[in-house]
Simulated scan of single mutants.
Amino acid sequence: MKTIDRMLFLVTVFSLLFAQTVGASDGAEVFDIKKGEIILTINNSNSLQNQVKDWLSSVNGTAGSLNIEPSDGIAIKIPLVPPYKVNNDWITGTVTEVVMFISTSKTYYPTLLVFTKEKGLVAVHIKNKSLQRFLKKNKLFNAELNLTEPSIH
């Protein structure tokens, strides 16, 4: 009996580990807004997850526009695996996914759409200190993209 219980336990553990690995490997999707298609998938690594956590900790205000999605540029959809708890002036809750919108328009600032389990979604602006480095690392950088921060009054 003990051998059967141990085997069932190991099968269950390996099944859970495999399921988590499959979910974590789905990665981030980069969407070309004008073309209307996914142009790249980025592996869901610790580095990617840490990048999102950095963005979430560098929020400097909410996006005031009702038009959250720009008409051009890119959108990067990143699931958080596991979900990440955030508690700051703009976001309180367990973040499950984010979408970073970046446009070429000089009047559209990079906007992070944050999905939480508790409150649905919120659109925020971030301090962009690491955004250019992230884009270059993932071969997404384009000098025409507007990476400036909105002026805070």
Rank of each mutant, 00 (worst) to 15 (best):
K106A: 10
K106D: 11
K106N: 12
K106V: 11
K106H: 09
K106L: 11
T107F: 12
Y108D: 06
Y108V: 00
Y109N: 03
Y109P: 06
Y109C: 02
P110Y: 03
P110N: 09
T111A: 09
T111V: 12
T111R: 08
T111E: 03
L112S: 08
L112H: 06
L112P: 08
L112F: 08
L112V: 11
L113C: 08
L113Q: 10
L113T: 04
L113V: 07
F115H: 12
F115R: 10
F115N: 12
T116F: 02
T116Y: 03
T116V: 03
K117G: 13
K117S: 15
K117Q: 14
K117N: 13
K117R: 14
E118W: 00
E118C: 03
E118L: 00
E118K: 05
E118A: 00
K119S: 13
K119G: 07
K119F: 12
G120F: 02
G120Y: 04
G120D: 01
L121V: 12
L121A: 13
L121M: 14
L121H: 14
L121N: 15
V122L: 07
A123E: 00
A123C: 09
V124E: 02
V124N: 00
V124T: 01
V124G: 02
V124L: 03
V124I: 05
H125F: 10
H125V: 06
H125I: 05
I126Y: 02
K127E: 12
K127G: 08
K127V: 05
K127S: 10
N128G: 09
N128C: 01
N128T: 09
N128M: 03
K129T: 13
K129D: 15
K129Q: 14
K129A: 14
K129P: 05
S130M: 13
S130Q: 13
S130P: 08
L131Q: 02
L131E: 07
L131T: 11
L131R: 04
L131D: 03
L131M: 10
Q132I: 10
Q132E: 15
Q132A: 15
Q132F: 07
R133M: 11
R133D: 15
R133Q: 14
F134M: 04
F134P: 04
L135S: 02
L135Q: 01
L135F: 01
K136P: 06
K136I: 12
K136A: 05
K137M: 11
K137Y: 13
N138M: 00
N138T: 01
N138D: 05
K139Y: 15
L140I: 00
L140Y: 01
L140T: 06
L140G: 01
F141T: 01
F141R: 06
F141L: 08
N142F: 04
N142W: 02
N142E: 11
N142S: 11
A143T: 15
A143P: 13
E144S: 13
E144N: 14
L145Y: 15
L145D: 00
L145W: 10
N146L: 05
N146D: 04
N146W: 03
N146E: 03
N146R: 02
N146V: 06
N146P: 08
L147M: 08
L147I: 08
T148I: 11
T148H: 12
E149W: 05
E149F: 01
